[in-house]
């Protein structure tokens, strides 16, 4: 361990430097607001944040969706999760709550995705709500049933990257540029990417909560005979 005094001095030094820098930021704040708003009509959406995320700086978002998939790959490679399976008929109160709450949450997620083109919202906000719904479902014991479909889970998790990469490939073939959408079609392509991303983000967040791979399937040695060669 680092001695307290050294650590305290180091922290204070970094704090002093950071404060000095922050206080010296230019008085006339430069920024890209004007440019971002100016190009908005060409972007295919009217919400500037969505325009930045999926058009101007779409490359960041592609890699970010990749980070999400990488994280779940890492978590699944590290440990096996516990998917509680409960019989909801024994818990009527929980069942009626979930029956109301889950559809509402899924609808909200979809609404956030749609509204993202015009107002605050988008795939990440929607994905977070969907992820919350999934956590609720897992806590309620619904996940026990889904985990038997590991291949479907894997496909759902990878969907965001697969669709995003495919859109990149298709639009590149159409326009010659990476993430360059054909004129006037930006909104449609963005919605397609966002829909796939929302599904994957929601699934990823929910399964990160579980914190491990499903107990059965090819990832688990001994549980199943390998049907094929290794």
């Amino acid at each position: 361990m680092i001695p307290r005094l050294v650590l305290g001095t180091l922290s204070l030094a970094v704090l002093a430097a950071l404060s000095w820098a922050v206080l010296s930021l230019p008085a006339q704040p430069p920024g890209l607001t004007a440019e971002a708003l100016g190009k908005l009509p060409e972007s295919g959406v009217t919400n500037p944040v969505t325009a930045v995320l999926l058009n101007y700086r779409g490359h960041d978002t592609l890699l970010e969706v990749a980070v999400l998939l990488l994280a779940i790959t890492g978590v699944w490679s590290l440990r096996q999760g516990e998917f509680p399976a409960a019989d909801l008929r024994e818990r009527p109160l929980l069942m009626s709550l979930l029956r109301v709450l889950l559809p509402v949450l899924v609808l909200t997620a979809g609404y956030l995705l749609w509204i993202g083109a015009f107002a605050p919202g988008g795939a990440f906000q929607g994905g977070a709500v969907a992820g919350g719904a999934l956590v609720l479902g897992i806590l309620g014991g619904l996940a026990g049933r889904w985990m038997r479909r590991e291949s479907l889970l894997r496909l759902g998790l990878a969907l965001g990257v697969l669709v995003f990469a495919s859109v990149c490939a298709v639009t590149k073939a159409l326009t010659g540029g990476l993430l360059q959408y054909p004129p006037g079609q930006g909104g449609v392509w963005i919605l397609l990417i966002e829909a796939a991303a929302l599904a994957s983000i929601g699934l990823t967040l929910g399964l990160l909560y579980v914190g491990g791979r499903p107990p059965a399937g090819p990832a688990e040695p001994g549980e199943k005979e390998p049907d094929g060669h290794g």
Partner: peptide
């Protein structure tokens, strides 16, 4: 240039989705 990123990235997503391949 884009393929340099998209190729391995698509492969990674595919290898996660279809572990046997």
């Amino acid at each position: 240039m884009a393929v340099l990123v998209l190729g391995p990235l698509g492969g990674a997503a595919g290898a996660f989705a279809f572990p046997k391949g």
